[in-house]
């Protein structure tokens, strides 16, 4: 036994590595196949057997999408609503996080647990009354309607509170003795020390907003207000699916997340894992 474990590769290791690489291939193949399908001609897409390497790089699918009067609009709607949601909910989370982390006041725990409790309640369970509320505010087919349910994040408040509690109280006290007000302390001490947690939170909230499906599906009924996630499903109709166009659309939909992932890979992976463990 002991000699076996000193070897670099035991049989057990080899079996594990083989399964590991099979899983890796299963993980990456759909993404690869999406990308090459986006560059295939319609004839090649319908060819049997499928081609794993495209015969030629065909740009027709992308040009078709970008000449579709609605597709750019969908993309723009996704960008606008996700950016608004991210900016507003990150600001709200930072402010509330600061209040909960660094102050004592009456009813503080009541407020905090009321917010925390909403994390557990699934959005799908109260979407019907929420819809009628937003409809009564004339929010159907508006950006206001698209963003309003996500404009505040209970997870974000919890996340920022946890992170801001790590900032030493002594720093805040020292600034107070120097006569700094609460807003000034927030601006000059708390914010600069929270840059990394704020950026992790921004990325997480942006990715969540970008992939939102149920709410945009019910609040936007006019094609001009559809977001990308909805628009992609419209590229198929009852009798025919243009997979080339659809995969080109999917590739475009992936771009923002992919850019964020390339630059903030470590932050995203740790942030998501941590938020899962904490939240």
């Amino acid at each position: 036994m002991s000699t076996a474990s000193k070897h670099k590769f035991t049989l057990f290791d080899i079996v594990c590595l083989v399964i590991f690489f099979i899983l890796l291939i299963i993980t990456l193949f759909p993404l690869y196949f999406m990308l090459i399908t986006a560059f295939k001609t319609p004839a090649e897409i319908n060819q049997v057997p499928v081609t794993i390497f495209p015969h030629e790089i065909y740009m027709g699918n992308f040009s078709k999408i970008f000449h579709d009067e609605f597709f750019l609009r969908y993309f723009l709607n996704s960008v606008i609503s996700s950016v608004i949601i991210t900016v507003v909910s990150v600001i709200g989370s930072a402010l509330a996080g600061y209040v909960f982390a660094k102050f004592k006041f009456p009813l503080k725990s009541v407020f905090f647990y009321a917010i925390l409790a909403t994390i557990m309640v699934p959005f799908e369970s109260f979407v019907v009354p929420l819809y009628t509320f937003v409809r009564n505010l004339h929010g159907v087919n508006t950006y206001f309607g698209l963003v309003i349910p996500s404009i505040i994040s209970s997870f974000g408040i919890f996340f920022m509170k946890q992170n801001m509690e790590q900032i030493p109280d002594a720093l805040v006290e020292a600034a107070k003795i120097d006569g700094a007000g609460n807003w000034k302390i927030l601006r000059t001490i708390i914010m600069p020390l929270s840059v990394s947690s704020l950026s992790v939170l921004s990325i997480l909230l942006f990715l969540t907003a970008w992939s939102d499906y149920l709410w945009p599906l019910i609040i936007a009924t006019s094609q001009k207000m559809f977001v990308l996630e909805i628009g992609l499903t419209l590229l198929q109709d009852e009798y025919f699916t243009d997979y080339g166009q659809m995969m080109a659309g999917c590739a475009v939909a992936l771009v923002p997340a992919l850019i964020l992932f390339i630059f903030f890979r470590r932050h995203i992976m740790e942030g998501i894992a941590m938020s899962g463990i904490k939240g």
């Binding site: 897409i45 999917c250 997340a257 992919l258 964020l260 995203i268």
Partner: peptide
């Protein structure tokens, strides 16, 4: 990092990709 990629891909594109792989004809 590569194994983590699907986590950041939103659900609709993910589903559409697999829908193509499970297509009856192609």
């Amino acid at each position: 990092a590569l194994l983590f990629l699907p986590v950041i891909v939103s659900l609709v594109p993910s589903t559409l990709m697999w829908k193509m792989l499970f297509d009856y004809n192609i």
